[in-house]
Simulated scan of single mutants.
Amino acid sequence: MTDCGCDKAKAELEEYLHNELCSADAQDIRDHLANCPDCTSEHHVGRVLTEAVQRACKEAAPEELRAQVLASLRSLQATH
Score class of each variant (00 low, 15 high):
Met1Gly: 13
Met1Leu: 12
Met1Gln: 12
Met1Asn: 12
Thr2Leu: 13
Asp3Ala: 11
Asp3Pro: 06
Asp3Gln: 12
Gly5Ile: 06
Cys6Gln: 12
Cys6Leu: 09
Cys6Asp: 11
Asp7Phe: 08
Lys8Gly: 05
Ala9Thr: 11
Ala9Val: 07
Ala9Leu: 09
Lys10Arg: 15
Ala11Leu: 15
Ala11Asp: 15
Glu12Ile: 13
Glu12Met: 15
Leu13Met: 15
Leu13Asp: 13
Leu13Ile: 15
Leu13Ser: 14
Glu15Ile: 08
Glu15Ser: 15
Tyr16Leu: 08
Leu17Val: 11
His18Gly: 07
His18Ser: 10
His18Met: 09
His18Gln: 11
Asn19Trp: 05
Asn19Glu: 05
Asn19Ala: 07
Asn19Thr: 01
Cys22Phe: 01
Cys22Arg: 01
Ser23Asn: 05
Ser23Val: 04
Ser23Cys: 03
Ala24Gly: 11
Ala24Asn: 12
Ala24Thr: 12
Ala24His: 10
Ala24Met: 11
Asp25Trp: 00
Ala26Ser: 09
Ala26Trp: 01
Gln27Thr: 02
Asp28Leu: 01
Asp28Ile: 00
Asp28Ser: 02
Ile29Pro: 03
Ile29Gln: 04
Ile29Ser: 02
Ile29His: 04
Arg30Phe: 08
Arg30Gln: 12
His32Pro: 02
Leu33Ile: 15
Leu33Met: 15
Ala34Cys: 09
Asn35Trp: 11
Asn35Gly: 14
Asn35Arg: 13
Asn35Ile: 14
Cys36Lys: 01
Pro37His: 06
Pro37Trp: 06
Asp38Phe: 14
Cys39Tyr: 07
Thr40Tyr: 02
Thr40Gln: 06
Thr40Met: 07
Thr40Phe: 06
Thr40His: 04
Ser41Pro: 04
Ser41Asp: 04
His43Val: 11
His43Arg: 13
His43Ile: 10
His44Glu: 14
Val45Thr: 10
Gly46Ile: 11
Gly46His: 10
Gly46Lys: 11
Arg47Asp: 12
Arg47Glu: 13
Val48Leu: 10
Val48Thr: 09
Val48Arg: 11
Thr50Gln: 08
Thr50Val: 08
Glu51Asn: 02
Glu51Lys: 04
Ala52His: 07
Ala52Leu: 10
Ala52Ile: 05
Val53Thr: 04
Val53Phe: 06
Val53Asp: 04
Val53Ile: 07
Val53Asn: 03
Gln54Ile: 07
Gln54Asp: 12
Arg55Ala: 03
Arg55Thr: 03
Arg55Asp: 05
Arg55Ile: 00
Ala56Ser: 04
Cys57Asp: 15
Lys58Arg: 06
Lys58Asn: 05
Glu59Leu: 02
Ala60Tyr: 05
Ala61Val: 00
Ala61Thr: 01
Ala61Met: 00
Pro62His: 09
Glu64Pro: 00
Glu64Ile: 00
Arg66Lys: 13
Ala67Met: 03
Val69Gln: 01
Val69Lys: 06
Leu70His: 03
Leu70Ser: 02
Leu70Trp: 02
Ala71Tyr: 02
Ala71Ser: 04
Ala71Pro: 00
Ser72Lys: 10
Ser72Asp: 06
Ser72Leu: 10
Leu73Cys: 06
Leu73Lys: 08
Leu73Ile: 10
Arg74Asp: 05
Arg74Glu: 08
Arg74Met: 06
Ser75Gly: 04
Gln77Trp: 06
Ala78Pro: 00
Ala78His: 02
Thr79Pro: 01
His80Thr: 12
His80Gln: 12
